[in-house]
Write a protein that binds this DNA or RNA. Sequence first.
DNA 1: CGATGCCTTGAGGACCCTCAAAGCAGGTGG
DNA 2: CCACCTGCTTTGAGGGTCCTCAAGGCATCG
Lengths: 272, 272
Amino acid sequence: MFSTSIPAKQIVYQLKEPQSSVPAAAFPAYKLWSSLKDVCDLLRIAATPSIEQETLQFQHVRYRRGQRIYTMGQPFKALYVVRDGALKTVVVDDAGQEQILSFPMRGDMIGIDGIFPRLYSSEAIALSDCELVYLPFKQFAALGKSHLGLDSAIYSVMSEDLLREQSVIRMLGAIGAEARVAQFLAWMSKRFDEIGQGGAAFSLPMSRIEIGSYLGLSLETVSRAFSHFKKAGFISVDRRTIDIHDWQALAGLRHAAPAGSQKQRDARKRSA
Amino acid sequence: MFSTSIPAKQIVYQLKEPQSSVPAAAFPAYKLWSSLKDVCDLLRIAATPSIEQETLQFQHVRYRRGQRIYTMGQPFKALYVVRDGALKTVVVDDAGQEQILSFPMRGDMIGIDGIFPRLYSSEAIALSDCELVYLPFKQFAALGKSHLGLDSAIYSVMSEDLLREQSVIRMLGAIGAEARVAQFLAWMSKRFDEIGQGGAAFSLPMSRIEIGSYLGLSLETVSRAFSHFKKAGFISVDRRTIDIHDWQALAGLRHAAPAGSQKQRDARKRSA
DNA sequence: CGATGCCTTGAGGACCCTCAAAGCAGGTGG
DNA sequence: CCACCTGCTTTGAGGGTCCTCAAGGCATCG
């Protein structure tokens, strides 16, 4: 139904479900292969001399807005690193409910959650046209053995992902609605800044519904929070265009917690 | 203040802050070293012949109820695998708020979130007396190179942890209070069953507050949910002793969602 | 036996979801 | 080029879930 198999060394434009009739050629023939060092740079892994000498190349794949990179239940074959564009990863429960897990952007690795069950256990969908580096898992994992420190670096990438999820859990479990949205905006701003797209003014790649799903809120609550921050002068909002005027104010809203958890009770008991 | 350094090959009883004055000798001299194969068995990793021949041994460490295994910000040195007992992992925010991330039990690996930042980014605290296997990270990671398939297995363990966190996120983001508690009980039951402590009747190692923190609920809501399930005949509750009478009923409450997210709208749009 | 945690149960109210309507942008087709 | 449709966003009104506050029971421990 949806064959992701990419025959060993062959350029494949991933253009199923064209949706709009732009031909593949409409994409500039950017750069379709990455060396191991390129991948490490993307992932912010320090490259050793040994890594720089590796000649194995990894293919780039492109997706259009709305396309699925992989689907729940599909056999796990590869990891992907985002080179350009924005995506969402979601799980769909048996009732058809979508829950968004992350919004991967440049430098993020996706597909990790498929390693253990040997099946992708979430779906990745492109929010904008995007370009990914395709890493066949076996080949990539094998490189960990031949390059000193690369295995630890891969562990690091996975560990980082765990950390990111932990901060989401913390947010969902112990923070009020407005503070979640504020923190989300602060994160996005920081993220766009790192990527070099200007952290102060950017365009959100996702809808209010998607933000709501990610934050455990309804779309209306997200919208209202935006409006509130606008009135307070922290940001400007116009549709998906955001200008951050007061990053500190947003990041500072982390506290203000009325949701899910006991406010200021108990705190800590045992003295260390 | 809290030195975790364990001098290479030497038995160390971790018994700081005795709390109650039970001497170390009160513990039976169980088995204080594990081979790589033992560790793999614990982690449910298939052991290859090469792994069975590995002679490197890993030390066991014991902790008493209430003791910290590691603390946030402490330099990362080792992973631990739970051999016996139950723990909690928590993050503490700048306001002193605790948020519980997981309740590791036999077969779980902890400390993974410290790999990337080279600092433990959460705390692990023993809920009961327990016994862990101490895996110095460098030595352990190095084994991944010399044993075929072990590196992939380690990736699997980490990937599994990611999956577990994802299901927590899904719960916090899109499910009502009672359903969370129900699912929590169903999980615990399954977990105790796997460990061989009887999935139908068990004793919870954690308090209502801790369950609430994990599930993003107040302790009162947890308590009320327990009472409700008792009245409905799904379980018996007496303090921390739980008897599951109708596992299906609990697991079935997964749906019933009124919290955090849009109920039955939109669902899925683009047809695959 | 008093003190201390932990758990249960009740009453009131805050927060955020649900439902509803209207404004706007982009795309399609006449 | 404009009408129309669809999808996204904003804003308002009402109500439900779950938190907060409070009091009392029941174990464990010094």
